[in-house]
């Protein structure tokens, strides 16, 4: 079946077997191998990508279900060839040892920071609690996220903060992405 979505800003139109997982599309069809397969059953988070700005596990998501969506992978977050503060902090602070969980960990952290620019340690830990790292014991991962936040705070103080374009228009669900300007806070009920 025909499936169309954007991956890292690039429109893609693919003829897919309906049983194709998003992970297979990314790794095998598009050769975006930064997204990893660690457990293949949604228990480790190594395949975390953003679908319409929300974290999702590519190993447990049919590609066809993402028709119309905006997909962001680890390869798509650097701006103009420069790694983001989060990526650089993972390198600097020891947040990446073997590196296999790193793409998923960075994407999960990015989803958090896009949503909540000033998280507590507890909120960072909660947001990363579906991502298993076997190397670090998470101490340096937490430090990496904190360091990225500190850098962002420093940059903001210097008036250099740029809104993250990929964060705009975040919505829940995996279907078509809404127009960028259509974001609004979740409706209040009652």
């Amino acid at each position: 079946m025909t499936t169309a979505f954007t991956v890292n800003g690039q429109p893609r139109r693919l003829e897919l077997d309906p049983a194709t997982l998003l992970l297979e599309v990314l790794r095998e069809h598009l050769r975006l191998t930064g997204t990893k397969c660690g457990c293949d059953d949604s228990s480790c988070g190594a395949c975390t990508v953003l679908v319409n700005g929300q974290p999702a596990l590519a190993c447990t998501l049919l590609a066809a279900v993402c028709d119309g969506a905006r997909i962001t992978t680890i390869e798509g977050i650097a701006a103009d060839g420069r790694l983001t503060a989060l990526q650089r902090a993972f390198g600097r602070m020891g947040g990446a040892q073997c590196g296999f969980c790193t793409p998923g960990m960075v994407m999960a952290a990015k989803a958090l920071l896009d949503d909540n620019p000033d998280p507590s340690d507890g909120e960072i830990q909660a947001a990363l609690s579906g991502n298993i790292c076997r190397c670090t014991g998470y101490v340096q991962i937490l430090a990496s996220v904190r360091a990225a936040l500190a850098e962002a705070a420093g940059a903001a103080a210097a008036g250099a903060a740029q809104p993250d374009a990929a964060a705009a228009g975040g919505r829940r669900g995996f279907g078509p992405a809404p127009p960028r300007q259509a974001t609004k806070p979740p409706a209040a009920h009652g």
């Binding site: 949604s42 988070g45 975390t48 929300q54 974290p55 999702a56 596990l57 447990t60 998501l61 999960a108 909660a126 947001a127 609690s129 579906g130 991502n131 829940r172 995996f174």
Partner: peptide, 9 residues
């Protein structure tokens, strides 16, 4: 339930 990303899915 499960993990934060699974709760979103």
């Amino acid at each position: 339930i499960a993990s934060p990303v699974l709760r979103r899915m």
